[in-house]
Simulated assay, not measured.
Amino acid sequence: MTKKKLHILFLNSWYPSRVLPANGDFIQRHAESVATQHRVTAIHVVTDPNIHHNITDDKIINGVRTLITYLKPESFPGNRLINFYTAYKKLIKMAGDYDLIHVNRIYPAGIIALLQKKPFIATEHFTGYLADLSINLSYFERYFAKKITKKAAYICPVSYDLEKNMLKLGFKGNYQVIPNVVDTELFYPQNKSSEVFTLIHISSLNNSHKNISGILRVIRKLQDYISDFRFILVGPNPERYINEIKRLGIHSEKLEMTGELPYDKIPEYLRKSNILILFSHFETFSCVIKEAFACGVRVVSSDVGGIKEFFPSDFGILVPKNDEKAFLKAIIEEKEKNKQIHQKMHQYCIKYFSKTSIANAYTKLYLKALKI
């Protein structure tokens, strides 16, 4: 898009590491997208409870120079803050000269950006800024978030709903929504090989967020309407729901629990499914819905947060939050409809969520922020 190749410093509150391998993986995908057009250095600091001295890793991961400092545990909060600040300061020095900072998750990494002399933009994903959850924000986060958003050249929430909620919190700034990335070369459609109607749910399986109990109740009721179907539950520690599954009377032959899957295995499971189901209490964007679209898989989801902003009406069905009757009805309707528009769904994702699309969007903002 531009002949000028910039050096972008990704300054991250969240980022995948050996301690938390999936933490902020969507941020990593943003960094990898930007790296197709610019030089990117991603930095992150995290406490590692299993070490006795600090360690810094310096690796090239998918085209991104990745600097992560692992800090030994520190019980005193004051020392912990000093250690984190010192570690970030050293990583910034290791990164070398750069053109612009790209903050990911504005608090606390944005505080470090405020102390630098370079312009910065900030991307935000945090569900904690949504109305029902923002009551839990600390005074310090509210205070510094206002400072950070005011100073940033651009604030880039992943949905308009998140932008609206951030503005309600008084986080004023120059907003530009840029969604999350879908790897459209990894997530692509193919014809279904299974004749059994297959539903899949992929998430952290956190019940307070993803409403797994609600999904299981609906799966139990689905047995009364559809005799032959399969439900695949993908996510960490699904065994925590075994007792609930037995109590509800869900037939074991209809259920497959995979545990947590490597990211590159998820498309395989999506492609052999007919629909993805999501029944969350809240979401800012939902990467997995767009990954399903890219695989040509239709979606039945609760209508929460920013989901409907990127949800064409012929790609599935949205139902009211917590409405189990509507959720069940939508699943049955999708089975009867059996509508397949694989390539249309994939092309939609290329247009709005591909690496090229997202890299182009960020490049425009980088150049504007630098007044180039």
Rank of each mutant, 00 (worst) to 15 (best):
K164W: 04
N191S: 14
I200W: 01
L216S: 07
C156W: 02
N180I: 08
L186E: 09
F231G: 00
Y175N: 10
F231S: 03
G170T: 07
S159V: 09
I200R: 03
H201K: 04
Q223C: 07
K147G: 01
S193F: 12
C156T: 11
I226A: 06
G170D: 04
Q190E: 15
R220C: 05
I219F: 09
R220Q: 10
C156D: 01
S134Y: 13
I178M: 04
N136F: 13
F231L: 02
D183A: 01
I178F: 06
T198G: 01
I178P: 02
V196E: 13
K172Q: 07
D161I: 12
I212S: 09
L216I: 08
T184V: 05
F229I: 00
S193E: 15
Y143W: 14
N165E: 13
G235S: 03
P179I: 04
P236A: 08
V218C: 13
Y188T: 11
S213A: 12
K150A: 14
V177M: 10
S227W: 06
N211G: 03
E163A: 11
N136C: 07
Y143A: 05
V177Y: 02
I148H: 03
F187M: 01
V158H: 08
V181F: 02
S194D: 13
L186Q: 12
G235F: 03
L137M: 01
